[in-house]
C-alpha cells in the first residue's frame, strides 16, 4: 500500500545514524520482520528513485520505525525531517524472515546497520518466548546500535568491535563460530554487509545450522517489476525486493 505517513519522532541515535518513527497504522498492522518500506525522499523531479529501508520496529499497532545511516542524498534528506512532516511510503514490501519450522533456539547476527531489521524480529521472538541469542558487531562501541534493546530482548548478547572499544576486538565473524558452539542455535537470522553475510553463510554451513540472510541491493521499483535489484542464486537471478529480501543462505551464489 501507498500511504502518507507523518513523522512522530526522530532521533540521532549515533553520529550520522537516525531513527524515525512514522504514523502508518495500515503498514504497521501487516508488517512482518524482514520486510521493508520504500520511501519517497525529496521533492519533485530531482530524486528519481525511492529508498528502501528495513522496518526497524512495528510493535505498537499504529507506527513503524526505520533506522538508517546518512550515506547519500536520500538519507540526508530524511535526516532533515522534522516531527509532523509527511512522507510518501510504500510498504510493507518483500518477504520477511521465515519462522515456519518453529525453531527452538535462534541466533541473531547483526553487522553494523544490519541491526535494522533484527530489532523487530527480536521483539517478536521475545513476545513468543523463543530462546534468542545475539551476536553483534560494529566499527566501535558507539555504533553497536540498539545494544541495550537487544540485551533486554534476547538471552545473551556477544559483541565484537573493530577497535576493541566493546566486546572482542575484531569482526563479528571472528566471534560467531564460538557463539554457535556455545549456544547451539537451530537457525541463524543475519543481516549486514554482503561480504559479512557470505562469511556467516559459510560458517553456518560448516556448523550445519540453518541460516536466513536479509540482503540489500540498489532498487528502483521495489515491487518486482524492474529487475534492478537481483541477486545470483542457485536457480538464477532472483529479485531482492520481491523474492527476498530474506533468503535461505544456501540458495545464494556467494
Amino acid at each position: 500500500m501507498q500511504v502518507k505517513a507523518t513523522v512522530l519522532q526522530k532521533d540521532e541515535v549515533a553520529p550520522q545514524v537516525h531513527k524515525i518513527r512514522f504514523f502508518a497504522p495500515r503498514i504497521a498492522k501487516s508488517a512482518q520482520p524482514g520486510q521493508f518500506v520504500h520511501i519517497k525522499c525529496g521533492e519533485e523531479q530531482n530524486y528519481i528513485l525511492r529508498r528502501p529501508f528495513s522496518i526497524h520496529q512495528a510493535n505498537s499497532s499504529d507506527s513503524i520505525e526505520i533506522l538508517f545511516k546518512v550515506v547519500g542524498r536520500g538519507t540526508s534528506w530524511l535526516a532533515k525531517l522534522k516531527v509532523k512532516d509527511s512522507v510518501d511510503i510504500i510498504g510493507p514490501l518483500g518477504n520477511g524472515f521465515s519462522l515456519k519450522s518453529r525453531p527452538g533456539k535462534i541466533m541473531l547476527v547483526a553487522g553494523g546497520m544490519g541491526i535494522a531489521p533484527l530489532i523487530f524480529l527480536a521483539d517478536k521472538l521475545a513476545k513468543e518466548h523463543t530462546k534468542t541469542y545475539t551476536v553483534i558487531g560494529a566499527a566501535n562501541k558507539e555504533l553497536l546500535l540498539d545494544y541495550m534493546n537487544l540485551k533486554r530482548l534476547t538471552r545473551k548478547i556477544t559483541a565484537a568491535t573493530e577497535d576493541g572499544s566493546q566486546g572482542v576486538k575484531g569482526l563479528i565473524t571472528d566471534i560467531l563460530p564460538a557463539a554457535i558452539t556455545e549456544d547451539h542455535p537451530d537457525v541463524i537470522f543475519a543481516c549486514g554487509p554482503f561480504s559479512m553475510l557470505r562469511e556467516v553463510a559459510f560458517i553456518a554451513r560448516r556448523e550445519d545450522v540453518d541460516c536466513q540472510v536479509a540482503l540489500e541491493e540498489l532498487m528502483a521499483c521495489g515491487v518486482g517489476a524492474c529487475l534492478a535489484c537481483v541477486v545470483k542464486t542457485k536457480t538464477g537471478f532472483k529479485r531482492v525486493c520481491a523474492d527476498g529480501p530474506v533468503f535461505d543462505s544456501r540458495e545464494i551464489e556467494w
Binding site: 530531482n46 528519481i48 529487475l227
Partner: peptide
C-alpha cells in the same frame, strides 16, 4: 540479464542496464 549493479540514480534521471 546483466550482473549488478544494474541501476544508478543520476541528476533528474537514472541509468539502467538490466
Amino acid at each position: 540479464g546483466n550482473p549488478v549493479p544494474r541501476i544508478c540514480e543520476t541528476p533528474s534521471g537514472m541509468l539502467n542496464s538490466i
